[in-house]
Design a binder for these strands. Structure first.
Lengths: 228, 228
DNA sequence: CAGCGCAAACTTGTATGCAAGTCCGCCAGG
DNA sequence: CCTGGCGGACTTGCATACAAGTTTGCGCTG
């Protein structure tokens, strides 16, 4: 977590962003104890902004708080991971469907941007740059929602996706994403170019559920992050 | 809003539920000014639980708060209504797809429950009971997610659906839902019985976007609830 | 030595008080 | 009569203080 806080903005939002990013990146691993006074002194604010930030994180099921006992970073629940996969694949298939069935004036231009993102994604993959790969991965999937005319829906996906991200960060500590991920990205873009809704939807469904196939291995390596 | 508050539970949650229901049911119409001190005295609590409840409502975009100016019940943004329709239809079609492609042991039993709900829904419709109709409407759509094995995803739908609900409450002040809604409910159940994914998905998409078709009329009747 | 009990420390939940900023109305002047 | 400026009331954001409950560890007792 960074230490400098913007003076003009609301501290509550700043604390929320800091904690959210820290949990997402596993800097605060599942099970970490979060004491409100400790966080407050550590971030140089009072307990009030910390509490409001935690309340928002509780709504996203990123932290669990037991009254008069303590608050901890939530464990990675496989049920929530599966739900997140379902939500993500359903929404993205819906976006792809809309992108294909009603191509507007901006369709070709936005499709060009999507191709650029795919190229960058491919380049980071070949270079073995995990951070760059994930950044372009995010942008690529987000672009599908832009093409579907539902750009704001990406915020919902991003909010739900955090449980997947924690799992992926664990996975990526050992190995870069498999080549299948790269192939699927290419297939999604190609399906959009061909206006092929059916194969595009199939690819997205496979792509989104890939992480579940690897989950058993990850759980075996980091059992302390999963509930007993 | 009811007045009695449970003593044991957290007041913050109670305040949140009260405000959420009040906004959902248009008891607090869009644009209503919400003063933290007023709400606090009215609910016989301090400002802290009120603030935490409001923070949660801001995340759901149900209220807008401008620092040092005031907080108001959010207007009904058509962009959010359309996003909600998209999310709802995408998730429900996904659930229907899963319900059909992997029928488990409980499938027949849960399908029977779905039939019962449909029958009750039909009865309320014939009797002109709007409240009963909507209650069974909710249960019917929720049942689709149960059949799809993603029961918890309904919570996401419920959270997003609130913008649709406000619009529907406006619509229903004048007329009961059209017969088309009832027919579509029947068609959804029939598609599940026939394991017909394609027609089921089409019906759900039509059903979810029906409200948008009526939106112009509603906006003309209640312009003060929509942004300028 | 083992087990029980009490007390202190730490946790979250709530209330109150203070600070900073914005808006509206009143009052004086032209 | 109209207009400009100033002051008060009201708003949210933050910090501090108090209350209630749980856990843990130490000390006493059998």
């Amino acid at each position: 977590m960074s230490e400098a806080r913007p003076p003009g903005n609301r501290m509550s939002d700043w604390v929320y962003t800091e904690l959210s990013e820290a949990i997402r990146s596993l800097e605060l691993p599942p099970g970490t104890k979060l004491s409100e006074p400790s966080l407050a002194t550590r971030l140089a604010v009072s307990r009030v902004p910390v509490r409001e930030a935690i309340a928002r994180l509780v709504d996203q099921r990123l932290v669990t708080v037991t009254p008069q006992v303590g608050t901890r970073v939530a464990p990675i629940l496989m049920s929530e991971v599966e739900n997140a996969c379902f939500i993500r694949s359903s929404l993205e298939t819906g976006a792809l469907r809309q992108a294909i069935t009603r191509p507007g004036a901006d369709f070709d231009r936005e499709l060009g941007e999507l191709r650029d993102i795919l190229a960058a994604n491919h380049a980071f993959f070949d270079a073995g740059d995990a951070d760059g790969f994930f950044a372009t991965d995010e942008r690529l999937h987000q672009a599908v929602f832009v093409l579907g005319g539902v750009a704001e829906v990406w915020d919902v996906v991003r909010g739900v996706k955090v449980h997947l991200d924690r799992l992926r960060h664990l996975h990526l500590r050992h190995a870069m994403a498999s080549g299948a991920v790269m192939d699927e990205h290419t297939q999604i873009v190609e399906a959009l170019e061909r206006r092929d809704a059916k194969s595009g939807e199939d690819v997205i469904r496979r792509h989104a559920h890939q992480i579940i196939a690897d989950s058993d291995q990850i759980r075996a390596e980091y059992p302390e992050y999963f509930p007993a």
